[in-house]
Design a protein around this nucleic acid. Structure first.
Length: 310
DNA sequence: AACCGACACAACCGCCTCGGT
DNA sequence: CACCGAGGCGGTTGTGTCGGT
């Protein structure tokens, strides 16, 4: 028997959420906390399916969500993390405080994928003539500067309504801080990767990545070489080592808590990944790649929002 | 000024995995 | 072990905006 899609029922509304609907949803969650989404439409009278309510909350109404242009630093993080993790948007989002996985996915699909492809083709043309790694690096970074000059207010599509949801979010922030139930459910993309769900999930991904090193996705095969071409060889290799170090750190952490991961023989982890954090400081390379030439100091502060392993 | 195409983003769909019962 | 609900994800669609003609 084929089950009807959850949002295909008669009377279920589709399309953009109205401010009124948002308020109803937010009020309900404020009272009952996020979760048990199935009961939300019934209890609130919203003509939306439970999944739609959940998505609306997690992607737009949840407190602490940042909207508007991505900073060059965030862009660099996404590119790097995508190369490392593949299309694991939730995992990537856990490293970008205030950004949702859906937001990152959309940004990747509409901007970064295109951009990287462009630089790949540009590289092929230029490499034949110059074979100069620095060229593409500079080009990417200068484009980032041009496209994301940090002026969030200039975002043409951040409509008035978007700012109204922002206001709703802000209103809730105080409540979320004080509500133990809420605070445990809303940390998916907040700083510090405090959400145990995300941490567990992410550590699994990392652990998996630490065994196979990289996700064998086609797209990654496109992106990784591109990243490799955007920086000098030594720096890229250093970042790879850095990634492996991160994997190792998380692997060690997860191996103590996740029985599935813990079952893996230690010998499966490449020697390189068994470095101690103190033994390798490749952070400067990553930072250099992400921040060099793009930041005027203001972006550097974003690094504070990164998990402690950075 | 009107039209049109490109673009960006919000939202949805369908499928899958995972965890709880 | 099976079932069910929540959540994650890739892909897609719908709609508003903007710039060019």
């Amino acid at each position: 028997m084929v089950r009807p899609p959850c949002c295909d029922q008669v009377g279920i509304k589709k399309g953009p959420w109205t401010p009124e609907e948002d308020i109803i949803l937010v009020s309900y969650i404020q009272e009952h906390g996020p979760g048990n989404w199935r009961s939300v439409p019934t209890n609130t009278g919203l003509l939306r399916c439970s999944k739609s309510c959940r998505l609306r909350w997690t992607n737009y109404l949840r407190p602490g969500i940042k909207r508007g242009n991505f900073t060059p630093h965030e862009e660099g993080m996404i590119i790097h993390l995508q190369a490392l993790l593949g299309n694991k948007w939730a995992a990537i989002a856990s490293y970008l405080p205030q950004r949702t996985d859906n937001d990152i996915k959309n940004y990747w699909n509409t901007h970064l994928k295109k951009k990287l492809k462009k630089f790949q083709t540009a590289d092929q043309a230029k490499a034949a003539a110059h074979h100069d790694d620095q060229f593409l690096q500079r080009k990417l970074l200068s484009n980032r500067r041009r496209d994301f000059s940090g002026d969030i207010t200039s975002s043409s599509s951040s409509s008035m309504y978007a700012s109204s949801t922002e206001n709703i979010s802000r209103l809730l922030e105080g409540w979320m801080r004080s509500s133990p139930k809420g605070s445990t459910n809303t940390a998916t993309t907040t700083a510090g990767n405090k959400n145990p769900e995300v941490e567990k999930d992410f550590s699994n991904e990392i652990a998996a990545a630490s065994v196979s090193c990289y996700c064998p996705k086609v797209e990654q095969e496109e992106i990784l070489p591109c990243c490799r071409e955007l920086m000098p060889h030594e720096e890229f290799e250093a970042i790879l080592q850095f990634d492996n170090l991160n994997n190792s750190v998380l692997w060690n952490k997860s191996s103590t808590s996740d029985p599935k991961i813990a079952g893996k023989p230690r010998s499966e982890v490449p020697q390189q990944q068994q470095m101690t954090p103190a033994s390798a400081p490749p952070l400067s390379f990553l930072e250099k790649w992400l921040l060099d030439e793009t930041t005027n100091g203001d972006q550097v502060g974003d690094i504070n929002g990164l998990p402690s392993i950075f």
